[in-house]
Design a protein around this nucleic acid. Structure first.
Length: 597
RNA sequence: GGCUCUGUAGUUCAAUGGAUAGAACGGCGGUUUCCUAAACCGUAAAUCCGGGUUCGAUUCCCGGCGGAGCUACCA
């Protein structure tokens, strides 16, 4: 039981004894005491006035007096208006720190076999182009969310839905057929996903050339689009693919294979992984079946041209297309099929889709459609919606070709980290392998931390230069703090210092140290909160606070030179727990922390 | 037009309905007999506007104004 819970119980008891009333735990608002006031925790007494029937000040006095008298945890109190500031006994901090240290997994709940099962879908790339900056946010959020859920004791299946079929893939395939001359990743030295992406771009160029040529002959925009031989060939390819034409399918498999190899490399670099991968080529047919069943059951309707639609006007939305007039499926059809397959495969309690907020409407509709089709999970699905990532110099839009490639970005971050390290000369005595490993940790840590610290639902600006700054609320700052803490511990070990089983409870503790212990003891609560509210960014800002506090503390107190052995033990123990908490917090973000930098 | 999200220092981000709205970067001014100066200290600087609910609103509700996205037989 942590301090907050202990206080809460004591306060409930106090209210019962003083005013003869039971109150809800929710009406006990405890918060950390602000720096300017004396105390550690503060009880807001305003909500209790109805029960005490006294003024705020008097109520605070009542409860404060009671707690000092009856609870060994509270030693002092002061009342300012409706705020009762409580001071915690020094011995409690010592005990708490020992307690934290004794539990290697503090803050993390172990996962039971029958724990609620969460499926988290993230990444979900198209196989016609490489991953870009937007995907980076998606992957990092999906991975971090999964880790936070696990730390909260949930079973998690991480899944990736690969959009491997459709007209867009056919564009790359056609372009490669027409102008590729048999180029392969091996022959060109290009990463597979980049190679295929290049042919997608090439198709677009040729298509535009063709269009302007047609327009030059006097055709209108619509006429030119309808008359496009390239588009006609692409559609033909899609029909061949759906019909299972051997040659087409073989090409499709070959090119998708290249792409997967490329994606795997990007995922590895990014540090994300999946437990189960679904392909839309496997789910679009079940999706069609469900739509046809809905049509038979009168849930949907068919237009004269054969297309199938859902009327969502009763839910305040528009009509939504489910099958094209030629019978082919659309995105929604596939998502229905995918959802059905997933719930057949796993006993999912909560399905979370990590998908950008430009698809808010899509998931609103998906939820309704699944519900209408009789799947009880439809209503409960969660769209973990996140905002777009922009760059300092303008917006990022794939249509305008201003995308930032994920591989390039990561390589640049690592390169920058390497340059900075070299400039500062901190790693002159490290081996090339060590330098490389640290550059990777720092460069990628900078990227990951900067993106994850921001509230997911907000649009954000990613500033590469700022992200890798060693000062400020950045990954490298936190990593550096960890490295320094480890340095202290290393030196302590070199000097033969070992920590005793129990600390002296009478050891004098400073306000800064109390603050750090308080932060440490809260870590589990923060993780739990982030998990239950899916607010991943909470953890990053929390770990930063801890790192910052430690830096200030570290500046003020010599640790290894401390003459008083018990105090030195206390401080070393504090260091160890700070290092652990930073490491655990960053691990939830998929960020490595170096032992030295 | 409709729907969703969003609006906080110069900038990038915080703030379970609680005290004097926190940080960081940038600006200005300092600190070096020191376990990593890749640090620390000080200083100036902000809740888009108007109502409502509340003991108390950056937060919740309503109405404006601004930004982003969606509103495809693309995914």
């Amino acid at each position: 039981m942590n301090i907050e819970q202990t206080l809460q119980e004591a306060i409930l008891q106090a209210i019962k004894d003083l005013y003869g009333a039971d109150v809800e735990v929710s009406s006990i608002t405890l918060q950390k005491t602000k720096r300017e006031f004396t105390g550690h925790y503060t009880l807001v007494t305003f909500p209790l006035l109805r029960i005490s029937r006294k003024k705020p000040e008097e109520t605070g006095q009542d409860i404060g007096t009671y707690l000092v008298k009856n609870s060994e945890v509270v030693t002092q109190f002061n009342v300012i208006k409706g705020f009762l500031n409580l001071t915690i006994a020094p011995a409690v901090w010592v005990r708490l720190l020992e307690d934290i240290d004794g539990k290697p997994d503090y803050g993390f709940v172990s996962v039971a076999d029958d724990a609620p099962l969460f499926m988290v879908e993230y990444s979900s790339p198209n196989t016609n182009k490489p991953l870009h900056l937007g995907h980076v946010r998606n992957n990092l959020l999906g991975h971090a969310l999964s880790e936070v859920l696990k730390a909260n004791g949930k079973r998690v299946v991480k899944t990736n839905l690969v959009n491997d079929r459709g007209i867009h893939i056919c564009k790359s395939m056609l372009a490669w057929n027409l102008w590729g001359n048999g180029e392969t990743p091996a022959s060109s030295g290009k990463k597979g996903d980049h190679l295929v992406g290049d042919y997608y771009v090439l198709f677009d160029q040729k298509y535009k050339e063709e269009q302007s040529a047609l327009r030059g002959k006097g055709l209108s925009k619509e006429e030119a689009e309808a008359a496009s031989p390239l588009m006609e060939q692409t559609r033909e390819m899609l029909r061949d693919w759906e019909a299972g034409d051997r040659e087409t399918v073989a090409l499709w498999e070959k090119m998708n294979g290249w792409v997967y190899e490329g994606f795997d490399e990007t995922y590895r670099q990014l540090g994300v992984s999946f437990d189960k991968i679904y392909h839309e080529s496997d789910t679009y047919l079940p999706g069609k079946e469900e739509v046809m069943r809905g049509l038979r059951e009168g849930l949907f309707y068919q237009k004269e041209d054969g297309s199938v639609w859902a009327d969502l006007s009763s839910d305040g939305l528009d009509h939504k297309l489910l099958l094209r007039s030629d019978g082919t499926s659309v995105y929604m059809t596939q998502d229905i099929g995918t959802a059905k397959l997933r719930f057949d495969d796993y006993p999912i309690d909560t399905m979370i889709y990590v998908v950008g907020n430009e698809q808010n409407y899509h998931f609103q509709v998906l939820s309704i459609l699944l519900d209408r089709l009789g799947f009880e999970f439809g209503k409960g699905l969660v769209h973990f919606s996140y905002g777009m990532v922009e760059l300092p110099d303008g917006k990022m839009k794939s249509r305008e070709g201003t995308v930032v490639d994920a591989d390039d970005l990561m390589a640049e971050m690592i390169e920058t980290a390497r340059e900075i390290s070299a400039e500062l000369g901190k790693l002159d005595d490290a081996t090339p392998e060590e330098v490389e490993a640290i550059a990777r940790m720092v460069g990628l840590g900078a990227l990951k931390y900067f993106i994850l610290k921001v509230d997911p639902k907000k649009n954000m600006t990613f500033n590469p230069r700022e992200s890798i700054d060693f000062n400020g609320n950045t990954g490298p700052f936190i990593q550096y703090t960890h490295a320094r803490v480890r340095s202290i511990l290393r030196k302590a070990e070199e000097q033969g210092m070992t920590l005793p089983e129990n600390l002296d409870p009478t050891v004098p503790i400073s306000v800064k140290e109390e603050g750090l212990v308080q932060l440490l003891s809260e870590f589990g609560t923060v993780v739990a909160q982030a998990g239950s509210e899916y607010n991943v960014s909470l953890i990053g800002n929390y770990v930063y606070d801890l790192a910052k506090e430690f830096n200030q503390y570290y500046h003020e107190y010599p640790i290894l030179r401390e003459e008083n052995a018990s105090l030195r033990d206390f401080r070393l123990l504090l260091c160890r727990n700070v290092a652990r908490t930073i490491k655990r917090g960053m691990k939830l973000f998929g960020i490595d922390v170096p032992e030295r930098m």
